[in-house]
């Protein structure tokens, strides 16, 4: 099966077919993954979004050859992760958040050089790549510093530099920005994008419970909870799934006497209208009354009728904006609770 897949150009970067994973536990078996099916195309940056214990890390461990599935099969670029383990390890790498691996007595450059040898490249080529990654991650100033003296952010940059050494076709990132400050997290995200852009076909599988990170980085996202994929698609597709109507916020000076909420609701394409009186303030701090209308439409095109009606009634438009659900809202709708409260559950991974 895997050979056939590898022999065609249609081999997925990651293909997961009916994978389940059951762990033995004191209170009885814990099912961390329930018959997961997933296909990630070459070149994608795919996100697994879910709370702690959702099964994200378990899936990453199976794909990165650290764990065997209890049932089902999975392949990386057509190579079976169970039967072709050695070959899978030659094209992959892994970065986990909060990773403090390495030997504290080695310097940054020595640590990278050691892993370059483990990854199988000739010595000179390995050292060239080590220096290249030191340069790329801007850690030249600390290249001769012992690992034990590095900050969390510097260590994670080192981990990323290590993971890029073998120029993997598939990179697994398991909560890679956990514990990093905003600036360091942005740096590593930028490097991941540059890494993918440098060689078309490089694929990244990212697990995170940071919604903004998933929304910003991922081409596609799967929302995972209790070992099941609840939904998958692009961030925009996921948002559309939970948005039953197009929601626009229209601000006017005041609703003219000839126009009422009932009149607006009668406009073709309008589903709902909610009104709220507020005050807005200009730069000098002078306030003026504003009426904000939250208008739900069957489709965006119906907005024209609303604007015409308001203008025809003499309303002065102050603002029009489209309101989109966030991934957090998508998550709440699909999972039934917020990711923060979900993350407080005990881990089964």
């Amino acid at each position: 099966m895997s050979v056939d897949l590898l022999g065609t150009d249609s081999a997925a970067a990651v293909e997961v077919r009916g994978v389940s994973r059951v762990f033995k536990a004191k209170g009885g078996p814990v099912t961390a993954l329930h018959e997961i099916n997933l296909r990630i195309e070459p070149g994608e940056l795919f996100g697994l979004l879910g709370p702690n214990g959702a099964g994200k890390s378990t899936l990453i461990k199976i794909l990165s050859t650290l764990l065997l599935p209890s049932a089902g099969s999975a392949s990386i670029f057509g190579l079976d992760v169970v039967t072709e383990t050695d070959r899978v390890r030659r094209i992959m790498n892994l970065v986990a958040g909060g990773d403090f691996s390495g030997y504290g007595l080695l310097t940054v450059r020595e640590q990278l050089a050691m892993f370059a040898q483990f990854y199988g490249m000739p010595y000179r080529e390995g050292m060239r790549r080590v220096d290249e990654q030191i340069e790329a991650f801007g850690i030249g100033e600390i290249k001769d510093r012992k690992i034990s003296a590095l900050s969390t952010g510097q260590r994670q940059k080192l981990n990323f530099a290590r993971s890029f050494l073998n120029e993997p076709w598939i990179l697994f990132l398991d909560e890679p920005t956990i514990g990093l400050d905003v600036s360091a997290a942005r740096d590593v995200r930028d490097r991941v994008r540059a890494f993918q852009a440098a060689q078309p076909g490089r694929t990244v599988l990212l697990t995170t419970h940071y919604m903004a990170e998933a929304d910003e980085m991922c081409d596609r996202i799967a929302i995972v909870d209790h070992g099941r994929i609840l939904a998958q698609g692009t961030p925009a597709e996921l948002k559309r799934m939970v948005q039953k109507e197009s929601l626009f916020i229209v601000g006017v000076d005041a609703l003219p006497p000839t126009m009422s909420v009932a009149n607006l609701r009668a406009i073709p394409g309008v589903i709902s209208v909610a009104m709220r009186d507020e005050a807005t303030f200009d730069a000098t701090g002078v306030g003026s009354p504003t009426t904000r209308l939250a208008i739900g439409l069957k489709e965006d095109g119906a907005l024209g009728g609303v604007i015409s009606a308001l203008a025809g009634a003499g309303a002065h438009l102050r603002e029009i904006s489209k309101s989109e659900p966030t991934l957090e809202e998508v998550f709440v709708q699909l999972v039934g609770r917020g990711i923060a409260e979900s993350s407080e559950e005990p881990r089964s991974e």
């Binding site: 065609t8 057509g78 078309p200």
Partner: peptide, 30 residues
């Protein structure tokens, strides 16, 4: 994503097959 796909080499699977097929001398050196 579509722009990325457009640039992915058609022979990617063959490239990966070659990369993962290490010779005995490669494995010994490694």
């Amino acid at each position: 994503m579509s722009s990325i796909h457009a640039r992915i080499p058609a022979d990617l699977a063959a490239t990966i097959r070659k990369e993962t097929n290490w010779s005995l001398s490669h494995r010994l050196r490694h």
